[in-house]
Design a protein around this nucleic acid. Structure first.
Lengths: 200, 200
DNA sequence: GCTGCATGTATCGGCTCGATATATCGACAC
DNA sequence: GTGTCGATATATCGAGCCGATACATGCAGC
């Protein structure tokens, strides 16, 4: 039922809320800045999604404002145990894992919180995807006028480089034990508790 | 009024129809295969767009089927003079030229039919865009855990390579006269007259 | 002559984007 | 102090697009 994009958004939100509760505005800012390649999403998408996650029991609302403030109430969302489990499911790839640029970058952003076996599977899935793309580009490498061919050749070279890079990651993942240790760093700014604006 | 995406689609359709009249199915196939990076678009988008272009006088419908065939009528679209002019406008960049991956790749696909001055402007616009992206990535290169940083570093290297490539193109464009000659090749399969299925 | 696949046009529901409305807070100027 | 500006924060709406689906024909293989 859930769209691929919806699943991806759920994954990102659940991942962000893992370390600290946040309100919607904060979530969006981090998706924009910290997570990087994840395309900015509009509030018209995010807010309904947050409410949906509450409905499904993955999040709970929690207002940090005292009752006697005149301030517009801000809704802080907090992860439930159920939500934590859901993140694990989504991180593992779920039913139909997508390996496009955006999905892959997002998965990588939460790799430190992903199981070793799932990590390997994701890297290999991405590899397969890029190899498909490379084959497709080589298939009609000769087509197009010289301008298009210029772009095609450049894209092909980029793909080869990306694949080499991926192969290195896979080798490293295979070599290390299930917990990479030296590669994991808990000081991700996206995981620092957010400052929730006014103190009150 | 027109969306950025609509303008892009108009540009692609007008460009494809420059050499030969086609029906919608053919247009979609070429957008998918020949043009490459232009994301596949659904018929639910393409057909209304074609009808819209007819309404605006950029295309005319022309049925190639004789009256006595039982075959479902296929609508062949043909470029008008007005449409040819419109393509020139859009190729020049129009009001708000977009320089994202998709737009740029599409513009490049029709570069042989684009004026020299517009070509240079497009390459430089793309250059500016990539430099922005590079600056943004470098600004928070230190953020994220080591997994994200791995991706960030790789992306940064790719951007640098892309910029180098672009600089070469720009130098070549500057060096050559307004018509590149040696670089232009009219044998683009996208510009071969389409085979319209059954002969009749 | 049956089955499957490519060709070809068309529509619809649901989801998303982009714009907009509303409201509070902190900062800085005058 | 008070005026304005930008950041914070939630919410909604119209327009537009994707993905699925329906329908119909031609062609190849068996």
């Amino acid at each position: 039922m859930a769209t691929k994009r919806q699943q991806l958004l759920d994954f990102a939100v659940l991942g962000l809320l893992h370390e600290a509760p946040m309100h919607g505005y904060e979530v969006r800012k981090r998706l924009d800045l910290a997570i990087g390649p994840f395309r900015a999403l509009s509030f018209g998408t995010l807010y309904p999604a947050l409410r949906g996650l509450v409905e499904e029991g993955y999040l709970v609302e929690r207002s940090t404002d005292g009752p006697n403030t005149s301030r517009r109430p801000r809704i802080v969302y907090e992860l439930t145990e159920h939500g934590r489990a859901r993140f694990g499911e989504l991180a593992g790839g779920g039913d139909d894992a997508a390996y496009d640029d955006e999905s892959f970058a997002l998965r990588l952003a939460f790799f430190a919180r992903t199981e070793g076996t799932a990590r390997l599977r994701i890297l290999q899935g991405r590899q397969a995807r890029l190899e498909e793309r490379l084959a497709a580009i080589r298939r009609d490498a000769a087509s197009g006028d010289s301008w298009s061919r210029l772009l095609t050749r450049h894209t092909e070279e980029s793909l080869v480089r990306d694949l080499r890079w991926l192969a290195e990651l896979i080798a490293a993942e295979r070599g290390s034990s299930s917990t990479p240790g030296t590669l994991t760093d808990p000081n991700h700014p996206a995981f620092q508790p957010p400052r929730l604006g006014a103190p009150n």
